[in-house]
Each structure stands twice: as C-alpha cells, then as structure tokens.
Amino acid sequence: MAAEGDKFVYDPERNYDDATMAQIRVMENEIASQNNIVSDRLSLQTLMEEYADADDAFKLKIKDLESRYRYMRRTRGDGNCFYRAFGFACLEQFLTDSKTLPRFKEVAQKSRDELVSLGFPQFTIEDFHESFMAAIKQVEKQCSVTELSNIFNDQGLSDYIVVYLRLLVSGYLQKEADFFANFIEGERTVKEFCNQEVEPMGKESDHIHIIALTTTLDVPVRVEYMDRVDSEKCTQHNFPEESQPSIALLYRPGHYDILYS
C-alpha cells in the first residue's frame, strides 16, 4: 500500500478488480448486519433524529410529514427497497382490511400464467410465484404482523418475493411495450430495459417500475417525495394519479420506506 501522501500510480500489470469487489462485498455485509430487511414500526421522531444536523429544508419537510403520518417502517438499502416496502405494506393492509384480498389473490394467482404466456420459462418462475402466494395465504389466515415481518426478514423468502415482484413489473412493461417505449432512456428496447434495470436483483426503481407494479396488481400507492426540491412540503404523488391509495411510501433519493398515518 502506498504511504499517505504518495500519489496513486496506476499499474497496468496489477489486478485491481479483486480488491475493489472485495470492498463492495464488505460494504454490502455492513449494510446487511446493521439493519433488518424490514424494520419494526418506528415513531416518525426517529426521522427527525436522523436529520438533527441537517439543514432546515429537511426539517421543514419532516414537520410536514408529521402532520400526516405518525409511524414509519424502514427497509434495508440494498436496491430492492421499493419492492420490499411496497410488498410488505400491500400485504399488511389486507390484515386490517381483508375485503379486497380475494380479488388480489386471484390477480396474483393468474399472474404466473400471464408471465408464462409472455415467454418467461415456467420452471424458473414457479418457485418465486409459490413464495409470493405462500405469503398471501398467510395473510389470508390472518397471521400476525410479526409473522408477516418474519417472512420479509427471512433473506431467502424475502428475496423470492422480490424476484416475483420484479418479474411482474417486467411482464407488465413488456405487455405494454408500445406505450412504455416512449419513457425509456437511451437506445434500448423495453425488453432490454427489463433485462437490465428490472429483473436483476438490486437494481433501483423509478416511476416506471411503480406504475407497472401498482397497475398490474391493482393496488394504488401514495409516494411522499422528500428531496432537495425547494419547497417546505414533501411532494405527493399517487400511482395511479386519480386513485385513493391506502398505503404510503416515503421516498428519499435512492430509497423507499413505509409510512403510516
């Protein structure tokens, strides 16, 4: 290792990849060991504490949030946070309001065959579908919130559900490719976009992913945007726009958590 102050000189004969990737693994493990995949319900006060040293812009936005929400649930920042936040909040709402659960279950059940008809190989998707359906069945049996939380905090089960939600997004975008082609940046087809930005684990989500998942599952969501935009309030956005969502997510650049009123 070079002594402090020495200028870094690139040595083309040396392999830097091993060290870089080992460093990435260390960072991933650190994130994993410090946080639950999905946390318990926390007072919004914890958000204020997190921004204690931040400028007033953020504090004003948190105050604004506090006027509408009382609790939050944090998700791990591993690039899958939107899927876990949405998946958890979506299933959790059916624990208190089970009226629309049968319809949701039917949509979820049928979705596998739709994916197969779009060309996804059945033998790879069925395991993910089964895990998703198993979680829905637990909710149908009115399991406790703790039991639902245990499912989402089991890395294996949780990841299987995330994969399935990613496939649902990919399937919907591909089914409506003519429409979504207009919103994809760069010289990519919708299918290429799905292969690169939707299906791989850890790839972050944007508006287009949220539109696809909320539409295909017919579960609307409200997102509160807490970003650097110059205003005293968080910007709200409903997906789809004219809906009345009963679940809400907090977006901070690059990350989604769950909000409760």
């Binding site: 990841d159 990613r166 299906e199």
Partner: peptide
C-alpha cells in the same frame, strides 16, 4: 457477457 454478472437475474437459467 453482461448476464453473467451485472444483468444476471434469478429468473435466468443454465439454458438461457
């Protein structure tokens, strides 16, 4: 080949 690292997805397989 990008699907062997960055673009790998658990829905891919030996066949794909």
């Amino acid at each position: 080949l990008s699907i062997l690292t960055d673009d790998w997805s658990p829905a891919l397989s030996v066949t794909s």
